[in-house]
């Protein structure tokens, strides 16, 4: 479970991005976060991922492993797709078993994003949309109990986006993984999430949530 109590954050003193934010996320729950540009949606994900520290308030999390699909694909340009995915796999001591299991989970993640033959390609050989899907495959390979998605499908066409969200939702529900999807698309939020959380503009009052 994830619980945010009166969470505040500002990049510069006196200019809060998030103010007294309260939010709970149950185990296995899929949440969509919506709100106007600059209201702190990405900041919220960075705080949850531990990349930023709250200015005040608390962030309680049972999550031991959090995967994050950033807005940009953020793939290692000098590694192939397969190596990019392998890079986030945990190191195991039993080499033979681990190698077979790793190869299987990489193949499974690539199949999920419909790029089963992309393993040997370098990021420079992929289109923008393909890179985004590989970034999602990396999060799937990593597993974990919480997945953060920061508008990852903005560059994809509507049909592919809907298909990926549906596949991802099914996978997350199967595994019981919680997820927070930041999006501007209402239809994406409704298709993916159990609940939509509306983040107000940075200076407005604390936020509330509603069922989709």
């Amino acid at each position: 479970m994830l619980k945010l109590n009166n969470l505040c954050f500002s990049y510069t003193p006196g200019k809060p991005v998030l103010q007294n934010l309260c939010l709970e996320l149950a185990d296995g729950e899929l949440l969509a976060v919506m709100g106007p540009s600059g209201c702190g949606k990405s900041t919220l994900l960075n705080l949850i991922a531990g990349l930023l520290k709250p200015t005040s308030g608390t962030l309680e999390s049972d999550s031991r492993r959090t995967s994050y699909v950033f807005q940009e694909p953020r793939l290692f340009p000098w590694l192939t797709v397969e190596q990019n995915l392998r890079a986030v796999l945990p190191h195991k001591t039993d080499a033979a078993d681990s190698a077979a299991a790793n190869a299987a989970s990489i193949a499974d993640a690539l199949a999920l994003v419909e790029l089963p033959d992309a393993g040997r390609l370098y990021p420079s050989e992929l289109s923008g949309g393909m890179k985004t899907r590989i970034s999602l495959a990396r999060a799937v390979v990593y597993g974990g109990d919480l997945m953060l998605l920061d508008e990852p499908f903005a560059a994809l066409n509507e049909e592919l986006r809907a298909d990926l969200l549906r596949r991802l939702k099914t996978r997350l529900k199967e595994k019981g993984t919680s997820a927070i999807l930041v999006t501007h698309q209402r239809e994406d939020a409704e298709a993916f999430a159990d609940r939509i959380f509306r983040l107000p503009p940075a200076t407005a009052a604390p936020a509330g949530s509603s069922a989709p």
């Binding site: 531990g50 995967s67 940009e72 953020r74 290692f76």
Partner: peptide, 24 residues
């Protein structure tokens, strides 16, 4: 810095960060 964040979020062990991020 973006790749460093990826390494941090995915909790890459130190030796793997050096091999896959720092050295290249």
């Amino acid at each position: 810095p973006q790749l460093r964040e990826v390494a941090a979020v995915y909790r890459m062990p130190a030796w793997r960060r050096v091999r896959l991020l720092t050295l290249p």
